[in-house]
Design a protein around this nucleic acid. Structure first.
Length: 475
RNA sequence: GCUCCCAUCGUCUAGCCCGGUCCAGGACAUCGCCUUUUCACGGCGGUAACAGGGGUUCGAAUCCCCUUGGGAGUACCA
C-alpha cells in the first residue's frame, strides 16, 4: 500500500510557519516513501474561513515548493478536496452513527451545558451528563428533529481506555471517562473537526497522520470515531510545537509568523524550508544547509525531537545567506530583481546587474539587502567627510592620487570605466609616484568612494557611472 | 482542576531505544586570532549544557521513581 499523507489547512488566516513546518514533514515523508502528498482544505468554520485566505495559503505552499499530488486545484481520485464540498458525506456518516445508537441528538440549552461543564471541572464528573444521551429519549429527540427543530448530534463516548502508537511519542495512553460526548455535527449541519477530519482521512485513504502536538488529545476522540465507523486506523506522528523566546505559544508578538511575510522580506523559499525542517528534525549526518532534493532520501519519522523548539530568526538569516551564496549568479539575479525598486538598477545592462549582484552575493543575508547596497556603494555623488576619510586624505600621498585620478577621469567620455582603466591608474601611481601598499589601495578607495571599507574596488568602480565619479572628485 | 506530552551550551540539536568509546559532538549567536593591504566570505581557536533529588549498577546524559519547571488539550474552533 502506498503512503498517503496530507496537510489539512484551515483558511482562517495566512499560512503560519508552524503549519508550513508540518507541511514540510508531510511532503518530505511522501517523497521519501514515493507516496502522495495531499492538501485538503478544512473550511467548516463558516465564520472565519475565507476564499482569500485559502488562495493565499495555496500560493505560499507553492512558493515553498510543496507541490501537492492532490488538492482542490488538482483533484485526484478522492475529490472533492474541500470540506465544505463534502457535507453530504459527513451527514451520511453521522446518520449511520445515529442509526447504530452511537450518537444522539442533543436538546440541552446553553445554560444546561454551562452548568454541566462547571460541575465536571469542580467534581471531576463526565463533561456531558444530559438526559439526551439516554436511549429512552432518542425517539422523542428524533420526532422533534423530524418536526423541524435544530439540534447538534453528539457522539456517544464509549466508557473505555484508548491508546495508540506514535512515531515520536511512543505509546500514548488515555484512561476511560476523560472526554464527554462531543458534538460531531453542529445544529447548522456543519461537521466538527474531530469528525470530518476522521471521515476524510479514512475515505481519502491516508496512511500516516503527521501533525502538531496540539492534536495529541484530539487523537483520543478521533480514535473513537475510527472505531465506531469501523475505519482502518492510520499511523500517527505528533510533532512538537514551535514556541517564542519567552517559551509561550508562537504568536504575532514574537515577530513574523506568516510565511507570506518572509516571502515579502526577501527570504528564499529553500532557506525557509531548510530552517523549518531543522526545527524539530535532524539530519542523520547533521547536515544543516540543504535543499529538499538533497535530503528527501534521508528523511524518516524517527528523527524528530520530542521537545518544543524556540523559533530563532538569526539562524534562519544565516541559512538564507548560505543559500544566496550557493546560488548561480543568473538565478540570483532573477530572484533579486523583484526586490529592487531603484530605477537606475533596472536601466542597466544585464552584465552590469550580474556583476553588481555577484559583488554582494556573499555579503548579504536577505534579498532585499541588495537594494540598499546600490545607494550605499554606488549611487552617491559627493564624499561625506568623516573621520575615516579625513585620515586617508591626511596622508601625503593621497592628494597625488587624487590629482592623477582627476586628470584621468577628465579624459574619459564613456559612461563607465573598465577594470583595466583602474588598473593602469594604479600602476601609474605605483611606478611613477612610487606609492604602494596601504597608501595606494586605501588612497584610491578613499578618493573614489570616500570610505575606508567596501567591496572589491576593481569591480565596484567600473559599476559606478563616470558622471558620479567626476562629481565626487569635482572634475 | 483534570488528561496528555516534554526537559543536553543563550538558541537549534547529536548522543538516550541497545548504560562504559562523552571531564558530552556539531551548527547559529558571541569573543579572539589568521586570511583579505579594506569590508565581507573563509579558516583556526575560546566561552558555554546533561533541571534537582533519590535509586539500579563496578559504571548513568543514557534505565527506574519523585520533585520542580515548561507546553498542549479540556468548544456547536481547527
Amino acid at each position: 500500500m502506498s503512503v498517503r499523507v496530507r496537510l489539512a489547512p484551515s483558511p482562517t488566516g495566512n499560512l503560519h510557519i508552524g503549519n508550513a513546518r508540518t507541511a514540510i514533514y508531510n511532503f518530505l515523508f511522501a517523497k521519501k516513501m514515493q507516496g502522495s502528498f495531499i492538501i485538503r482544505v478544512e473550511d467548516t468554520d463558516l465564520e472565519r474561513s475565507t476564499k482569500e485566505f485559502e488562495q493565499n495559503q495555496m500560493e505560499d505552499l507553492k512558493w515553498l515548493g510543496l507541490q501537492a499530488d492532490e488538492s482542490p486545484a488538482n483533484p485526484g481520485e478522492f475529490a472533492p478536496y474541500r470540506q465544505s464540498e463534502r457535507l453530504e458525506l459527513y451527514k451520511d456518516y453521522a446518520q449511520k452513527l445515529l442509526d447504530e445508537g452511537k450518537a444522539f441528538y442533543d436538546f440541552c440549552s446553553d445554560e444546561e451545558l454551562q452548568i454541566m461543564s462547571e460541575k465536571a471541572k469542580s467534581e471531576g464528573t463526565s463533561p456531558y451528563t444530559g438526559k439526551w444521551k439516554k436511549a429512552e429519549h432518542w425517539d422523542e429527540a428524533k420526532s422533534r428533529v423530524a418536526a423541524g427543530e435544530k439540534a447538534p448530534i453528539r457522539f456517544l463516548v464509549p466508557d473505555k481506555a484508548y491508546s495508540f502508537k506514535d512515531y515520536v511519542r511512543g505509546e500514548v495512553k488515555f484512561p476511560a471517562g476523560m472526554v464527554g460526548d462531543f458534538v460531531i455535527l453542529r445544529s447548522n449541519g456543519m461537521p466538527t473537526y474531530n469528525f470530518c477530519n476522521v471521515v476524510d482521512d479514512a475515505l481519502q485513504k491516508m496512511t500516516h497522520i503527521i501533525r502538531g502536538e496540539d492534536h495529541t488529545n484530539n487523537t483520543l476522540r478521533q480514535l473513537m470515531i475510527y472505531e465506531a465507523l469501523d475505519f482502518d486506523i492510520p499511523e500517527f506522528a505528533h510533532v512538537s510545537l514551535l514556541i517564542g523566546e519567552d517559551r509561550q505559544k508562537l504568536s504575532k508578538r514574537h515577530g513574523v509568523t506568516s510565511v507570506r511575510q518572509y516571502r515579502e522580506d526577501g527570504y528564499l523559499p529553500e532557506a525557509l524550508f531548510n530552517y523549518l525542517c531543522l526545527l524539530g528534525w535532524s539530519h542523520p549526518e547533521e547536515k544543516d544547509v540543504f535543499n529538499w532534493q538533497d535530503i528527501a532520501n534521508d528523511f524518516s519519522l524517527t528523527r524528530f525531537s520530542k521537545s518544543h523548539a524556540i523559533y530563532d530568526v538569526e539562524k534562519l538569516k544565516w541559512i538564507n545567506g548560505q543559500h544566496i551564496k550557493n546560488m548561480e549568479a543568473e538565478e540570483l539575479l532573477q530572484k533579486v530583481r523583484p526586490f529592487i525598486k531603484n530605477e537606475f538598477f533596472h536601466s542597466q545592462t544585464k552584465e552590469w546587474q550580474l556583476s553588481f549582484v555577484s559583488l554582494f552575493q556573499d555579503k548579504v543575508q536577505l534579498l532585499k539587502e541588495f537594494e540598499s547596497k546600490i545607494n550605499e556603494y554606488v549611487l552617491f555623488e559627493s564624499l561625506n567627510s568623516s573621520s575615516e576619510l579625513d585620515e586617508i586624505m591626511g596622508w601625503e600621498t593621497t592628494p597625488q592620487i587624487q590629482d592623477h585620478v582627476k586628470a584621468e577621469l577628465a579624459k574619459i567620455d564613456t559612461d563607465f570605466i573598465q577594470a583595466e582603466d583602474l588598473d593602469s591608474w594604479m600602476n601609474y601611481c605605483k611606478k611613477e609616484l612610487k606609492i604602494k601598499g596601504k597608501p595606494l589601495f586605501m588612497g584610491f578607495r578613499g578618493v573614489l568612494t570616500g570610505m575606508n571599507h567596501g567591496p572589491d574596488l576593481k569591480v565596484l568602480v567600473p559599476l559606478t557611472p563616470v558622471s558620479l565619479l567626476k562629481k565626487r572628485l569635482g572634475v
